[in-house]
Structure formats: structure tokens, C-alpha cells
Nucleic acid binder design. Structure first.
Lengths: 173, 173
DNA sequence: TGTTACATGTAATAAGTTACATGATTGA
DNA sequence: TCAATCATGTAACTTATTACATGTAACA
């Protein structure tokens, strides 16, 4: 079977509970988006494709006159998800414009270069606040909770790291 | 001027020293690729484009009968780079398949889910070894050194975090 | 009555990777 | 002589974002 990241987002979410494409987008935007985003332009076509393959099943459940399709995982879909979950290849790609700037920051006057480190810390202070807003609902399944904790801990680490490095760079020069 | 990430990679590298497209790819693969990758398919067309815009200047410097073009930064190019460097918007995108698996790992038996945390730690042990291989050449400019240190510290943090969480998850259950 | 949220979808575009083609040089 | 490295480039493909079109429902 052909698969891409969106495949696993869809199957994974449907393993939590049945939902519509619209709801998937909302859940993603409050959870996985920090390490795996998904747009309508990926979600809806992928739902169709997976339905065609028999990995998900869609049912029409209109709300009043507003059409709505709710999807659930088939046995085949659950099987495909489990196979992927057991895979151990760790693929990571990052595009971090702030680190790229830092890498080239020697071209800048020292004080302005330090601003970049401060800006990075500020960014993560903002991200931390956002994550704290999402808040650990105590009834999250354990591994959902784990990834939320990851986000919080990672932001705190970034803030500490930037702060320490800024101090260091200031002392060195 | 129209710009994308590759624009800044090219201009930034040429601010360090003049080099060919081939050399850029090598440098990227040993440095920025951890937070900003670039392929030949991006580098070569972008060099042409920036040459057309007058931000970089290419000179033919064949080695024997092997053709070779070496690029350098023009004043305009340097100006464009500095303008971007002073920008403070922090754009970050991550695609982390390992965290995505972790997020959905409640669908797995507990022991297999723990394997995912271990696999993640192992991945970062490998990445750390790789980075230690690149090694801090003491003559790196300060901010180049900073990003290398970032890579090392980040890997160590990941390893510690995964190890701690695995222990925690084991105790909880 | 107007704004926001619900709901589905696509077309255009941008961004990025992979694999290939071509050929010279170096060193075992 | 063979493999690896140097060197430039592109075509095909995959992936992802953005912006739009369409219309219902809830609520202030």
C-alpha cells in the first residue's frame, strides 16, 4: 500500500475515535501540528483515497441540512496502522529559520547577533504559553500525554539553552 | 525581491567565503542540513537566479579540463543577506515521524510502545555520534560554533528525556 | 442582521527530493 | 583499470500550503 505522513495521521486519529475531516483538522491543529501538520488539501483527498482502499469507512451523518461525513477505521485500516506503528525508522526533518540565521549571524554586529538568540527564546516563551493553554487534560491517553509533556519540556529546554548561551556569548566578548 | 530558504543558504555561505555550487552542497551536508537541508535541485537553479538578480557573481575557474564556476557575494547580495539576518520572525516546521508514532502509541501493547521511546533515544545517540564526528574545529566563527553546540546539546537532551520518560512510563504501569 | 463556527472540497502554486545524464580527475 | 570524488545540471515526482468557492447553523 502506498502511504505518506497524512495516511498515518488519518488512521491514527480514527483509532482514537470516529470523526469527520473537519474535526481531524481541528484535532491536528491542537496536537500533532507541532511535529506533524496537515491541511484540508491533504486531509480530504487522503480520506477519499483510504476509503477507496477500504482502510476507512465513511458514513453520511448530516447535522440538519448541513452535510457531514464521519469516518471510522476498518479492520484493515487498524492493521495497517499497527504495522506502521511498529516500524522503528526515525525520520525527522526540520526547517528552522531561526537556527539558520544564527548559523550565519557572524556576518552581523555582535549585539544584533545576540538579539537573534533573545528572539529565539521569546519565540519559545510564546510557544510554551500556547501549549500550557492546550493544557494536560488528565484524561488524555498516556502517550498523548507524553507528547504534550514533550512539547512543554522541549520549550523549557530551548528557553534555558538560549538564555545560557546568550549569557555565555556576552561574557566571552 | 523574491526569496525562499535556499536564497539565504546561498547568500549566507557566500558570506563565509566564495565557493562553487558543488562545494555548497558539501558544506550544507556537514552543517545546516540538521535544521535546513538543500539539494542540488535547489542550489543550482537558485545560483542562476541570484546571478541574474546581481546578488551573486559567478566566475569560471576550471580545474584542468573540468569546468567549474565559483560564486561570490556582491554588495547587493550582502545587503540582502543583512536585511534578512535582522528579521526576527521565527519560522519553524518539523516533520517528526517518531513523535507522530508516539502520539498514536496508545494503540499498541505497552511494551511495544516503550520500544518506540527506546528507538528514539537510539536515534539521537546515533545523531550525537555523527555530530561529534563533525567536531568543533576550534576555528569555527562563534555563531557557527553556537549552532554546532546546539546540535550536541539538543541530542543529549533528547537522550536524557527519552530515558527519563521510559523509566517513568515503566514505573507508572 | 451580521459574525463566527461548521463542513466539504479543489485549483494553483510553492517547495523539495530523487534519480539520472554527462564527463573529468585522483588515487589505489 | 576501476572506483571514488569532483562538478554541473535537469526532469519527474512528491509533498504541502494557500486561497478560494460553496453553503448551513448558532448566537449575539
Amino acid at each position: 500500500m502506498e502511504a505518506n505522513g497524512t495516511t498515518w495521521v488519518v488512521l491514527g486519529l480514527l483509532a482514537l475515535r470516529r470523526m469527520s475531516g473537519y474535526e481531524m483538522k481541528q484535532v491536528v491543529d491542537h496536537s500533532t501540528r507541532f511535529f506533524w501538520a496537515a491541511s484540508y488539501g491533504q486531509l480530504y483527498p487522503e480520506l477519499r483515497r483510504l476509503e477507496g482502499l477500504g482502510l476507512v469507512a465513511g458514513e453520511s451523518e448530516p447535522r440538519g441540512a448541513r452535510p457531514r461525513r464521519v469516518f471510522s477505521l476498518t479492520e484493515e485500516g487498524r492493521h495497517a496502522l499497527h504495522t506502521w506503528l511498529r516500524g522503528s525508522r526515525v525520520r525527522m526533518e526540520t526547517r528552522d529559520e531561526s537556527l539558520l540565521r544564527l548559523f550565519f549571524a557572524d556576518a552581523l554586529p555582535h549585539e544584533e547577533a545576540l538579539d537573534l538568540v533573545r528572539a529565539r527564546a521569546d519565540h519559545f516563551r510564546g510557544a510554551l504559553a500556547q501549549l500550557e493553554g492546550i493544557a494536560s487534560e488528565a484524561d488524555d491517553p498516556p502517550f498523548v500525554g507524553l507528547t504534550l509533556r514533550y512539547g512543554l519540556d522541549y520549550c523549557r529546554w530551548e528557553i534555558d539553552w538560549c538564555t545560557a548561551q546568550e549569557r555565555q556569548l556576552r561574557e566571552d566578548r
